[in-house]
Every structure is written in C-alpha cells, then in structure tokens.
C-alpha cells in the first residue's frame, strides 16, 4: 500500500506490532473508523485494544449513566461519584481512552443508533454493538448491509461466565496464506437475522450449547420487553418453559440447552465476569484488526467462550444457500 509513510513516532510506538502484521496493515488501521455502540465491559476491553493498536478514529455511543454494574467491569472510570455523576458513559470512557494513545481520535456521538439514517454508517469500516435488544441489533445490521461500501458488523453478548460474538463481513475477499503460496479466498456471511433463523436441526452437529442458551434468553427478554441482562435466577421457570417450546418447535432435544448453563447465565444478570470480558474483547479486537488490514483468516461467523470448559469455539452458522 502506497501513500504516506508512518511517522517516526508511529514506527517507534507500534514497533512490536508492526512485526506481527506489517507496515501496510498498520497504515490501513490508522485510516480506519470504528463505531462502538453500547459500552459494556467487553466493549471497553475492545476499545482499549483498538486504541492501543492505533486505529484512526473511534466513535463511542452510550448515554447511560454510571451504575454499580457498569463500574464493576469498567477500568476506564474512577469510582468517584463526584467525578462521574451527571455524565454519560460514553463521555467518561472517551475522556479516559484519549489518554491511552494521543495518535487516535476518540469521539462520541449522541442519539439512538437504530433511528439513524443509513448514510450515517458510511463513514465507518466496522460497527460494534452491545447492550441492546436483538431487534435493534438486527435493524443496525440491515442498515450496514445496505451501504454501498462494506460496513462490517460485530455484535457482542456477555452473560456471566459465557460470551458470544457475531460477525457479519457480508462478502469478504482476502488473500489466504498457505504453505504453498497464497490463494484468494471468498467468504459470504449471512446477516444476523438469516443466521439465527436457520432451523436448529440444520446446524452443524455438536454446535456450541452456548448458542442455544443465548437464543432462548434473548427470546425471553424480547417477549417480556426486558432490557438485555435484565434477568435473574427467578426467571428460570419461565425460561425453561420457553426452552421446551423452542426445542419442540425445532425438534431438538432439550438436553442441548442444559439447565446448568441457563442458570449460570441468568444468575449473572447484568453483571459481567471481567476475565470473560478480557478474553472476548481480545478476540474481537483481533478480528476487527484482521478485517481492516485484510491480513489473516477472519472468523466466520460466531465465536463462543465459556469459562466452565474454557473453550473458545468458532461456529459457522450459515445456510448452505448463503455460505
């Protein structure tokens, strides 16, 4: 990639990572613009990773006030009420992130992302959403997909000791490194709507159980009009009824959605487990860097992490027609 060279300052700061992904990738990163909507612990970890990596622009959106739950997984905000009260989460995170790397422009955007015009998304290379309902995620995903230039979408969900990342790179072409040279590789990603509409029986055998559990709880929150994470262990009876309904409709054994897993997710409620945030935020950061730089095999299209077994699993959940 031609164009301006990295400055001496950039070369010195990014030395160790340029040795990982090369100068071209570093230049592409420094031109990229990323939007993060919803600042949970995982999103904050991700933001830190992108600012350190030297992304060009990072825009934050989350106008929630600071609460106890927010603070427990956030290392950007000092727990000093005099400092944070009356200020929104994005303002506070923005201020702190700016300090990490003066070469990155960090800004905030106010408003309701799901109501924004499609054109708003044009300036972004990637959009990361969390802390919102399935409905809003789908709506944002659709807007991204309708843009003339690709706007990649990443959706994160973190429930206690379990986490999920969904990725939509639409049509993605990249050069795959192989032992005997390189090959052009094309991937076709389904939208979130398409992916989760795939009948459960058609999914890959032994697909991660976290996938099913996430869908059950997500459906529950949607039908009850709850905010994400607004659940507790007392919801278990209703959740189990929903599990039965969904499994029956999809003719899948209920054993694929273990009670113990649902319990763990519900008990956490809106609280996140910081080691899970660090791990998911790291994987997500790596994926976004891959997609922006065009280097490395991107993950398609779900990633699951569960501390109970310690596995970080990639699942390709796409129709034969879309894959």
């Amino acid at each position: 990639m031609d164009g301006e060279e990295l400055t001496e300052e950039e070369t010195a700061l990014y030395d160790r990572q340029i040795r990982v992904w090369g100068v071209d990738a570093q230049k592409r990163l420094s031109k990229a613009h990323i939007l993060v909507s919803g600042l949970n612990g995982t999103a904050v970890e991700f933001c830190k990773n992108m600012v350190l990596a030297g992304v060009g622009n990072l825009t934050l959106m989350d106008d929630r006030p600071v609460t106890e739950d927010v603070l427990q997984s956030n290392f950007l905000i000092p727990p000093d009420e005099a400092y944070y009260s009356g200020r929104s989460l994005d303002e506070l995170c923005c201020e702190s992130l700016k300090d990490f790397n003066p070469m990155v422009r960090v800004s905030i955007e106010k408003g309701d992302l799901s109501q924004f015009d499609g054109e708003f998304f044009d300036k972004f290379d990637a959009v990361v959403v969390s802390c919102c309902s399935l409905k809003i995620k789908k709506a944002i995903n659709e807007k991204c997909r309708r843009r003339p230039r690709r706007v990649a979408l990443y959706a994160i969900e973190c429930r206690g000791s379990c986490g999920e990342i969904f990725i939509d790179l639409q049509n993605y072409t990249y050069i795959q490194k192989k032992s005997d040279g390189t090959a052009e590789c094309q991937l076709k990603y389904p939208s979130l709507e398409e992916a989760i509409s795939i009948p459960w029986r058609d999914l890959p055998r032994k697909v991660s159980k976290v996938y099913f559990a996430m869908r059950v709880i997500e459906r529950f929150e949607l039908s009850e009009g709850r905010k994400p994470g607004e659940t507790s262990i007392s919801d278990l009876p209703l959740i189990l009824r929903l599990r039965k309904e969904l499994c029956d409709a999809q003719s899948l054994s209920e054993s694929h959605v273990p009670v113990s897993l649902l319990e763990r997710m519900l008990a956490a409620g809106g609280k996140e487990h910081p080691p899970v945030c660090a791990t998911l935020g790291g994987v997500l950061g790596q994926e976004v860097i891959k997609a922006i730089s065009g280097k490395g095999d991107p993950l398609k299209n779900f990633f699951f992490f569960d501390t109970a077994d310690g596995k970080g699993i990639i699942e390709d959940i796409s129709n034969s027609s879309t894959s």
């Binding site: 040795r19 990773n49 990596a53 945030c277 660090a278 791990t279 790291g282 994987v283 950061g285």
Partner: peptide, 14 residues
C-alpha cells in the same frame, strides 16, 4: 525482538 500485540496479552490474562 519478539512481536507482541495487546489483544493476545488481554486474552491470556483473562
């Protein structure tokens, strides 16, 4: 010099 990135360190720390 061994190359190093923040993301892997974050994952490993978790």
């Amino acid at each position: 010099i061994v190359h190093a990135v923040a993301t892997t360190n974050a994952i490993i720390a978790g």
